[in-house]
């Protein structure tokens, strides 16, 4: 379920030094992080975090939508791609920017505007897609909305291809390429910016889901749609808001991606979407903390593979990890075990 905080109740019945478990839960991840840092060095560590942050932002949309209507929204990766195009259209084609902007007083409002516009536009697109394509199929067998989602994915890709062509389009890298030097390591300021933006959004999302009235509506709808209605929750509106937030986060990831890589193409959403979806499953689909965690893990696996000289094997290692995790924890790292939904 959407972000009821993962507690220790999952797997409590597993016969294994029960008193050690909470400790292991903290120690093992801590060791992994320290190990990754020692192995990769600070520069690649930050690189992995940056990539992971982008995957995590996309993965949140997959997991939220799955949590609430049990749909794998295959068009979600394309929302990320479109978010990047909204941003490059605004910054490059409307404002005519090309290079970096070094004055913070000018840069900050531009960044805020780019995020704002991309998130609003993509949020609106997400709500519209839900209304037109998925809502009419809510009572249909699960396969129907799934196939529809694949269709929506093609439609979005083709819309962008018609408008921008099948080539890469430049996205203005308005963020100056300044490095922050820590000891001998040079960390790009942009990377830190991306990580901070992503983490702030994730925390805001957790607070929203955990503390607000709409968040309660979302959690109850995910747990039991009929019961939620009987509590007075407007489930149509709640589902629409879930799509809105998921799509807006994908839009934000698109902006970030444009700043980082400087180019976008109509099919960018496919690969990124696949990996983000993997992240959501790895973390436990339906669980927002799990999706964020999964995103970062995949970032680390990819960059780790590159550091070891296996960059071409990156995807294989990512999916291999997924297979191994699912063998031992079929519902993902933080997913609830089956049967808990009494």
């Amino acid at each position: 379920m959407t972000a009821l905080p993962a507690t220790s109740e999952a797997g409590a019945r597993v016969p294994m030094g029960a008193s050690l478990r909470p400790l292991l839960r903290l120690v093992i991840p801590a060791l992994l992080v320290v190990g990754a840092y020692a192995f990769m060095g600070p520069e690649q560590f930050v690189n992995a975090m940056t990539r992971g942050a982008i995957y995590a932002l996309i993965a949140l949309g997959y997991t939220m939508v799955y949590g609430i209507i049990e749909l794998i929204n295959f068009a979600h990766g394309d929302m990320f791609m479109m978010g990047a195009f909204v941003s490059l259209t605004f910054l490059g084609q409307i404002l005519g920017l090309t290079g970096s902007i070094t004055e913070i007083a000018k840069l900050a409002p531009l960044l805020v505007a780019a995020f704002f516009i991309s998130m609003i536009v993509m949020g609106a697109v997400g709500v519209t897609i839900e209304r037109l394509a998925y809502k009419p199929l809510r009572a249909a067998p699960r396969l129907a909305p799934l196939i529809t989602a694949i269709g929506v994915s093609f439609i979005l890709q083709n819309i962008v291809m018609l408008k921008y062509g099948p080539y890469q389009t430049n996205s203005p890298k308005i963020f100056p390429s300044v490095d922050i030097v820590i000891g001998t390591a040079k960390i790009p300021a942009l990377s830190l910016f991306i990580i901070v933006v992503a983490v702030v959004m994730m925390i805001a999302l957790q607070l929203f889901i955990g503390r607000t009235r709409l968040g309660r509506a979302m959690r109850s709808t995910a747990a039991d749609r009929d019961a939620a209605q009987l509590m007075g929750v407007n489930i149509n509106r709640t589902i629409a808001i879930t799509f809105l937030i998921g799509a807006a986060l994908a839009g934000a990831a698109g902006v970030v991606n444009g700043l980082q890589y400087g180019v976008s193409r109509f099919d960018d959403g496919f690969q990124a979407g696949l990996k983000a979806f993997t992240a959501a499953v790895l973390g436990g689909i339906g669980n927002t903390v799990g999706a964020a965690l999964g995103g970062f893990i995949i970032g680390f696996i990819e960059v780790g593979a590159t550091v070891m000289g296996f960059s071409r094997w990156g995807p294989a290692i990512v999916f291999g990890t997924l297979v191994i995790v699912l063998v031992f924890r079929p519902s993902g790292l933080l997913g609830q075990q089956l049967g808990e939904r009494a």
């Binding site: 379920m1 009821l4 109850s220 747990a223 039991d224 009929d226 019961a227 209605q229 009987l230 509590m231 007075g232 929750v233 407007n234 489930i235 808990e340 939904r341 009494a342």
Partner: peptide, 20 residues
């Protein structure tokens, strides 16, 4: 959800408690 506001309370079949 509007009927809840209007004044209909329903304890449904199977209780449908939020188990978590």
């Amino acid at each position: 959800h509007e009927l809840v506001v209007k004044g209909i309370g329903h304890a449904p079949e199977g209780r449908r408690i939020f188990s978590r």
